[in-house]
Simulated scan of single mutants.
Amino acid sequence: MADRDPEEIMKEIDQARDQLAATVDSLAARANPQRIAEDAKARALAFVQKPAVTISLAGLGVLTVALVIRRLRNR
C-alpha cells in the first residue's frame, strides 16, 4: 500500500464526516412529521381549489341536500 500523508488522510476523513452530517441533516428535515403534514395539507388544498374539483364538490353537496330533503318529505 502506498504511503499516504496523514494530513491528507485527515482531510479526507473530515470531508467525509461533513458530507455525512449534511446527508443526515437533509434526511432529518425530510422526515420531520410536521413538515410532512404541512406538505400534505398544501397539496390537498391545491387539489380542492382546482375549478373542476370545486364544481364537483359543490354538485355533490347540492345532490346530498336534495336527497336529504326528499327523504324527509317522504316520511
Rank of each mutant, 00 (worst) to 15 (best):
M1I: 01
M1N: 09
A2T: 06
A2M: 04
D3R: 05
D3G: 05
R4L: 07
R4G: 01
D5N: 07
P6V: 02
P6W: 01
E7L: 14
E7Q: 14
E7M: 13
E8V: 11
M10Y: 06
K11W: 05
E12A: 05
I13E: 06
I13H: 02
D14E: 14
D14A: 14
D14V: 09
D14N: 13
Q15I: 08
Q15Y: 05
A16V: 07
A16T: 08
R17M: 15
R17H: 14
D18E: 12
Q19A: 11
Q19G: 06
Q19T: 09
L20D: 08
L20R: 11
L20Y: 13
A21N: 06
A21H: 03
A21L: 04
V24G: 00
V24L: 12
V24K: 14
D25N: 15
D25T: 14
S26H: 13
S26D: 06
S26M: 07
S26Q: 13
L27W: 01
L27K: 06
A28Q: 08
A28P: 00
A28D: 02
A29P: 00
A29K: 13
A29L: 07
R30I: 05
R30G: 11
R30A: 15
A31Q: 08
A31F: 03
Q34D: 15
R35A: 10
I36F: 01
I36L: 04
I36N: 01
A37F: 00
A37N: 03
A37L: 03
A37E: 06
A37Q: 03
A37K: 01
A37R: 02
E38D: 15
D39Y: 01
K41P: 00
K41E: 10
K41Q: 10
A42H: 04
A44E: 06
A44W: 01
A44V: 06
A44C: 06
A44I: 05
L45Y: 03
A46G: 09
A46Y: 00
A46C: 04
A46I: 01
F47T: 12
F47H: 15
Q49Y: 06
Q49V: 04
Q49L: 12
K50S: 04
K50M: 07
P51W: 03
P51I: 02
V53M: 05
V53D: 01
T54H: 14
T54I: 12
T54D: 05
T54A: 13
I55L: 15
S56P: 01
S56V: 09
S56T: 11
L57W: 03
L57Q: 08
A58V: 07
A58Q: 14
A58R: 12
G59Y: 07
G59N: 14
G59Q: 13
L60V: 04
G61N: 12
G61L: 08
L63W: 12
L63G: 15
L63F: 12
L63A: 15
T64P: 07
A66H: 07
L67P: 04
L67K: 09
L67N: 08
V68M: 10
V68C: 09
V68G: 04
V68F: 10
I69S: 07
I69E: 08
I69L: 10
R70Y: 10
L72W: 09
L72K: 07
R73Q: 13
R73M: 10
R73P: 02
R75W: 08
R75S: 09
R75A: 11
R75Q: 12
